[in-house]
Amino acid sequence: MRKHLRRCKARVPTAVAQSTVEDDVTTASSAIAIAGNDDILSEIIVRAPLKSQVRFKSVSKSWLSLISSPGFSLLRSSFPRLSGLLLRKKWPYLVHPAPAAGPSFEFFLPKSSLSGDPPLKSLNFVPSNGNFSGVDILQSCNECIEEMPVPAIPGFRRHLRNGKHMLFGESDGHLHLIAELFTTKFQVFEMENDYSGWFVKYHVDLDGFVAAFPAVVRSYLDPLTTVRREYYAFSILGVIRREENEDESLLLLNVPDKIVRCYFEIFPSLKDGTLKELLYLLPDDERYVIRLSGSSNVCGPRYTNYNVFHYIESLALV
């Protein structure tokens, strides 16, 4: 503490109007008292948006070391974090010519009231070396990679593969696996905090959703059998958890032109105290529906027009 006090010397104003000298000196001494107290200073800086925090590293060396310290990270983690999704539109395979610019990511903030303005509206990458996505993995740390068991689903033998019938994600410090059981039935697994295994966090049953949103029911003519087949034009984008307030945890569904937020209804535990039953939805309620800009085509039995990436706020240098 003493070290900081020494660094933060006062710049007492030298040429000020007589009447305000006293005020300025008290303000200066309070400012110095605050700047010399890491605890109070942290309480102030941590309440600024992440981008400002990063900028404030340039204030002085002691601010840099404060903002980079483990204690500050710990304090940060006790505040609600911005949890958003970056959505990248998939390009239809047959579009010619391919667009000149790289695909852009649309930023999507599930709960806009949380901390003011969204940090970004969209994200663009410049294509490099013919890499269409414009994204390269610069480095990864093998030491950190450990194999995790795929959860066993009782009474169900389908081989789980990421992408098709399974979706992997992270939210608010929790790892999730969303596994499709049947077309409208899903289970959301969550990794135990000690990484020892998965447990069922939510049951998702979208029959009621489909009934309330008839637009998602589509059909196509099977070219081989000439039978008309029905399918549902929705896909699950992910689960957003709120540790602080479980009522705000939600499931995001992509239906044609829209993203729908579905809140979980938490029932008292069923069997082992961990099981929570999802139930839907407040369909067609504008508050819960986000309309997407531009139109999108439904182009297959599984309606997935977006690649979804979680937006994670971090002070880490990458």
């Binding site: 006062a10 400012a31 110095i32 700047a35 200073l41 800086i45 309440r47 600024a48 400002s52 204030v59």
Partner: peptide, 25 residues
């Protein structure tokens, strides 16, 4: 603390330095 953070969040770091009377080292 929130009010102070809201006031300084959009200010350049040079100005934040002056507000807190921090010497640029």
């Amino acid at each position: 603390a929130q009010k102070i953070a809201d006031t300084i969040k959009d200010k350049p770091h040079q100005e934040v330095r002056e507000i807190f009377h921090v010497e640029n080292d």
